[in-house]
Design a protein around this nucleic acid. Structure first.
Lengths: 200, 200
DNA sequence: GCTTTTTTATAACAGTTGATATTAAAAGGG
DNA sequence: CCCTTTTAATATCAACTGTTATAAAAAAGC
């Protein structure tokens, strides 16, 4: 019983994602959020908790609805395809929406006041998890002969992630999709080759 | 005539750089600044103007005192040495001070409220200038036979900058200098070679 | 149709933000 | 030694921050 909610939670969450994506965690105020979602302040609090909890839910929404290509990329047959998929899909996502370029995981909370440290840690952990899963995927590729036995998979994963992060920074600076794809190609230009039939 | 200033402007500017470096433009409050510099609020205003002007002067100070290796790198004889110098010196700078990792030019103002857009543009322009000078340096290398005639110098410069930016993000996440150097080596692992005697 | 329950909307909360008015203090010139 | 000029320090400004009481409105059960 009781009154029914007048807004769709997932829809509001998507609007919140858009604002956080553009302005970051601390750069987004509740005035921004009510404006973007069309929902009054107390309703946001009752539905999502405080700002930190709202951001964490927005982050989960972002991962499911926009970063779904990341786990999908790991399923591809070769390490080169994995890396290429990540790089090119990121180039596309980072430039897809003119009003919110780049990546929420990168500039959602890079620097800021001490109050936001918990959010910064959450983003760092999320990126660390992504890098770890990429490293594990490269380890598998090494065992499969897709990558040389001499490959340092941790370094290779860190390198790919570094390029992804750098592309996000450049996207926020207004780089075109073509330019980011050129960066991606350069990163892939000398991908190490293994001794398996898969690698060629 | 008149009373003498009780603080050294350059010293205070360096303290301001440290705070901005760690917390970014909007994440830094005047309370932080007075605490770090030991100078009261009105004195900061009379000496540097408002917050935006103070940040711009801090940015110039940062460039002169910490980013001096950037123009120096461009003077090196080969494009590979230029890139290597930039990458490894950045890995060092980004991890030199445990209390302020990463790069002020990257996370000084990536995302934030609309009030900070002028500062964001200033940082974007600064990074764009650096990338342009790097591209010009690669163009010269191409003419000298240090890089293949097929080289897309704009893409190559954008790639190096992307790795630098990505390393800054990773440094802020706590990456060690060794890890960043591994990323740098990976980026350099397949540097294009020209046909001049300089390139080998 | 009243009661209960949940959701809205208005208004206000204390704390902090960047920026100053004001007053006291110090330095140098005549 | 006074007078002018510049700086320093205390206090304060309005505007905004995230967060909540409080009251009005709507939906469902008995």
């Amino acid at each position: 019983m009781g009154r029914n909610r007048e807004f769709d939670v997932d829809q509001v969450l998507d609007a919140a994602v858009c604002v956080f994506w553009r302005k970051g965690y601390e750069g987004t105020s509740y005035t921004d959020l009510t404006q973007a979602t069309g929902v009054e302040r107390p309703a946001l609090y009752s539905a999502f908790g405080n700002k930190e909890k709202l951001f964490r839910q927005a982050l989960a929404h972002y991962y499911e609805h926009y970063l779904d290509y990341f786990p999908a990329a790991l399923e591809l047959p070769t390490s080169r395809e994995v890396a290429a998929h990540l790089l090119f899909r990121s180039a596309e996502l980072h430039t897809r929406y003119p009003d919110r370029k780049g990546c929420l995981y990168v500039h959602g909370a890079l620097a800021g006041s001490d109050d936001a440290e918990s959010i910064r840690c959450a983003l760092i952990n999320a990126r660390t998890d992504g890098e770890a899963s990429l490293r594990d995927r490269f380890e598998r590729a090494k065992q499969e002969g897709d990558l040389p036995v001499t490959t340092n998979c941790a370094s290779l994963a860190a390198f790919v992630m570094a390029v992804l992060h750098g592309m996000a920074v450049q996207a926020k600076a207004g780089f075109s999709r073509d330019m980011l794809e050129a960066v991606a190609e350069q990163a892939l230009s000398t991908w190490p080759t293994g001794n398996s039939t898969l690698s060629r």
